[in-house]
Nucleic acid binder design. Structure first.
Lengths: 198, 198
DNA sequence: ACCAAATTCATACATTCGTTTGTTAGAAAT
DNA sequence: ATTTCTAACAAACGAATGTATGAATTTGGT
């Protein structure tokens, strides 16, 4: 199990960092969960901080890989491919996995990692979305394009990060998160003259 | 300076907790910044955890007090009062003060405090908003009402928590946050048949 | 001015933290 | 067969943590 220790450390750290935050997860706990020594973190990553960075980077890349792929922009069935990618991404974000919780913590800490590794995939998603809905030329310059993007990204983010608050405010059941988001996204897309169903 | 020490502790703790998180802010640092002894936290609050709870509660209440007041619902100029309250609330949230950052951290930790003390003011805000825009009867039951609320809350939350990411994605300057939000809110309100300018 | 209560203080305690150290086992290379 | 090197280990380090303690000081009421 040569390279496996490093991988086990990464997995254990992802879970513990997501659950308890950076300072809340001790190196000992991580190494315990990974079945390694207390010094394994320093040995493999050079310290706790760098392990945290590695974990955050992997989480961000993992989420980013779910977004629309750049090469899909020229396909014939643009909207279908795009909508599929969006559906995957949204479902992943809505299920509170470790990656999403980690990025939320990073945002509370200033969002250094989020800015760096989430911006590129968000940009391609935005461009493809605008292209597929007809806001083709320079979507970033138009208020329409910005509204379209924020109309999708903002609700997903809100329901991901603060769903308990929203549910209590709107007097919804806790299991209606996906339904509410679907309703929201469908209306937003429709308002911008796009696909019928997500 | 009798009661002042307690207050200084609260202020110092608010800043340090917001900047470094719960575990990242040590009791010694807080007491140092407040000009008090290491034991002052235990004496005045009974421990670090209870100081944190007090700080979070105050931050949430502070934000909640900026929202629309319940008694304003029956005034004649409903929309004006409401819009003023919303403007105050939004500007406060957009300026990244300690209260907002603290609540973001609480959300990353599960949002226990946020749910408990942010839900009531959000609910009255929602009801008044729906009433002022004509979705009077049972706004929570209608998809229109939910969309209206989320159309306002979601962008504010996104721009508050993740503005650097959004700015980089849309290739906007960092100082255009308020402008973008104003554009968004205005369109959303207008789309729901409401006031012209926020 | 006096006393009792409340508050602040300096200090110390036990724990836990991240990291370093010296060493061992096993594979790779010579 | 001998050397070299990487990975993993147990142990221990110094530093920092939250809290407890008792003395010193300030405060407010009489």
């Amino acid at each position: 199990m040569n390279i496996a220790t490093r991988e086990r450390l990464l997995r254990a750290a992802t879970r513990l960092f997501a659950d308890n935050g950076y300072r809340g997860a001790s190196v000992r706990d991580i190494c315990n969960l990974a079945g390694a020594n207390p010094g394994a973190v320093s040995y493999h990553f050079g310290g706790k901080r760098q392990l945290y960075r590695a974990v955050l980077r992997r989480a961000a890349d993992e989420l980013a890989d779910l977004g629309p792929r750049p090469e899909a922009a020229n396909g014939e069935a643009e909207q279908i491919v795009l909508v599929d990618a969006l559906r995957r991404l949204f479902q992943r974000m809505l299920s509170d996995d470790a990656s999403t919780r980690l990025l939320l913590r990073d945002l509370a800490d200033g969002g250094a990692v989020a800015v760096e590794s989430l911006t590129p995939p968000l940009r391609t998603a935005f461009e493809q979305l605008a292209a597929a809905l007809g806001h083709g030329d320079n979507p970033r310059g138009s208020a329409e394009g910005r509204l379209l993007f924020l109309g999708l990204a903002a609700p997903v983010f809100l329901l991901t990060a603060a769903w308990p608050v929203v549910a209590r405010t709107l007097e919804l059941e806790m299991d209606q998160k996906e339904a509410l988001l679907a309703e929201l996204v469908e209306r937003t897309l429709h308002a911008h003259g796009g696909v019928e169903t997500l």
